[in-house]
Design a protein around this nucleic acid. Sequence first.
DNA 1: CGAGCCTTTGATTATGGTCAAGCGCTGTGG
DNA 2: CCACAGCGCTTGACCATAATCAAAGGCTCG
Lengths: 243, 243
Amino acid sequence: MTLRSTQACQHCTLRQLCLPVGLPQEELWQLDEIVQQRRPLPKGTTLFAMGAPFEALYAVRTGALKTVLVSNDGTEQITGFALAGDLLGLDAIHSGKHPVSAVALESTSVCAVPYSHVDELAGRLPTFRQHMMSVMSQELAHDEDLHVLLGQRSAEQRLATFLIALSERHRARGLAPHHFSLPMSRADIANHLGLTQETISRLFTQLRNQGVINLHTRDLQILEPDRLRNSAGVTITSAASSA
Amino acid sequence: MTLRSTQACQHCTLRQLCLPVGLPQEELWQLDEIVQQRRPLPKGTTLFAMGAPFEALYAVRTGALKTVLVSNDGTEQITGFALAGDLLGLDAIHSGKHPVSAVALESTSVCAVPYSHVDELAGRLPTFRQHMMSVMSQELAHDEDLHVLLGQRSAEQRLATFLIALSERHRARGLAPHHFSLPMSRADIANHLGLTQETISRLFTQLRNQGVINLHTRDLQILEPDRLRNSAGVTITSAASSA
DNA sequence: CGAGCCTTTGATTATGGTCAAGCGCTGTGG
DNA sequence: CCACAGCGCTTGACCATAATCAAAGGCTCG
C-alpha cells in the first residue's frame, strides 16, 4: 500500500503550492526522503476516518476530497474541500485523532508525510518550520472568513462567494479560472455552506438564467465574473482560500 | 507603555493553561525573558486593530476580549471571545497583518510575546514547538466545531452550546462552572452565533422560564446543566474550546 | 438625575427549509 | 449496444424559523 518514492517533490508541478514552498534546493531532498506515495484512492474512498489515530499529514497530488465531521446525532458537516496542493490533517495534531474524515470526490492521489518527520524537520529547518506555521495560520484566517460567510451572508452571497473562491483556487494552480468542473455534488456544496440542496439548485438556475454562469451537470463556466462578484456582495479578503 | 517583567510565567496562575504548558522549569525562564506586560486595557479599548502589522502574540492574563472581523460593507463578525489564558494573534502569522481586531470587553491585561522570539524558541525547544503546533491545531479543530454549529444547528442549540462551552472554559480555569458573569453583551453573543439580539433575548427568557438558567443582566447561573445540554441537542466533542 | 445604551417583548415578514414529484444523467448488466 | 435502475438534480407548493420593525423598560455612568 505504501510505496517509497525517491524523486517526488523536486519535480512535482505543485512544489510552488505545497509543502516545499520556500525550501531551498539542498533541503528539498530531505522532504523527498520522507514523503510516501500511495496508489490512487477511487472515488468515494476514505483517506482517513474521523477518530482514527493521527500519524501523517497528507498532501493532495491530484483529484479532490471533502472533509466531513459527523455529529453523534448523525448530522454531517462538510468542513472543506481539498484540491491538488492542499494539506490535510493539521487539525489532528492536538488530539492525536482526526476530527474529520477525508473522502475522495474523484479518483485522487496523495502524498503522506509522517508527522514525526514533519516535527523533526521543523526543528532543523527554520524555513520549513515557518512555512508550517504560516500554513496553519492561513487556515485559521480562512476559517474566520468562513465564519463571516455562515454568520452574515445570504444564500446567494454564500454560493457566489464559494464559486469565486473555487475560481481563485484554480487560478492559483495555473488552471483556467473561469471554466472548470465541480468535483462535488450540489448536496455537498449545500451542506458546506449551511444550506439545502434545493436552495443551491434554485440559485444555480437563477445565475444561469441571468447569464452569469453556464452550468451543465458538473461543468461550470463563469461568464460574468464581475456580476458574480456582485452577487457575493462583498469583496473577499483572502479569496484563494481552501473553500 | 511596555514594561519589562522579570518573574512572570513562573508564578502565573495560568501557567497550566497558557504558553508555558509542558515547559520544564529550566526552560520557563526563557519565556519570562521574552514576555512583555502592559498596563491593563480599559473596557472598549483595542489591543490590536484589523490590518495592523503582526508583531507579537498576546496571552490574556485577566479580563476578556472579543475578536472582530469587519467586512468592507461594514458588517461585523465576532469570530471569538478570549478569556484568561487564551492566546491571540495566531491568525496573523500568514499574512503579517491581523485579520481581526481585538477589543477588551472589560478591563483586561495581557502579556505580549514578540513573534520573532516565539519562532526562535520554537526552533530551540522541541516541547515549545510542539505546544505551539498543538495550540494552532486545537484552534483549527474548534473552528470545525463552530462550522457545525453555524451550519447545522438551530438558534436554541447554538445558544445552549455556547453557554456550555463557556461553562467548560470556566471549569478548565478552576472557576465555578455554573455561576459566572457574561463578559459580552447579548448583541455580541448573537453576532458570534449568526443570530440577532432579539432572538438571543427571547431564548434567554425561555431558558429562564423553564428553570434551566437564572440570568440577571450579566450574572448567569446554570441551574440544570443536563437540561441545558439537552437544549444543545448533541454532545459537544471538544467542549472546552475558545467559544 | 438624566442620557444613552442594552435588553426585553410584541407584531409582522421574509428567507430558506421541508415535502413531494418528476426528469435526466450515468453506469451496469443483459 | 441498449435498457433499466438508481442516484443526482430540478422545480413547485407550502411552511417554519428567525429576521425585521417598533416600542418601551431598565441599567450604567457621567
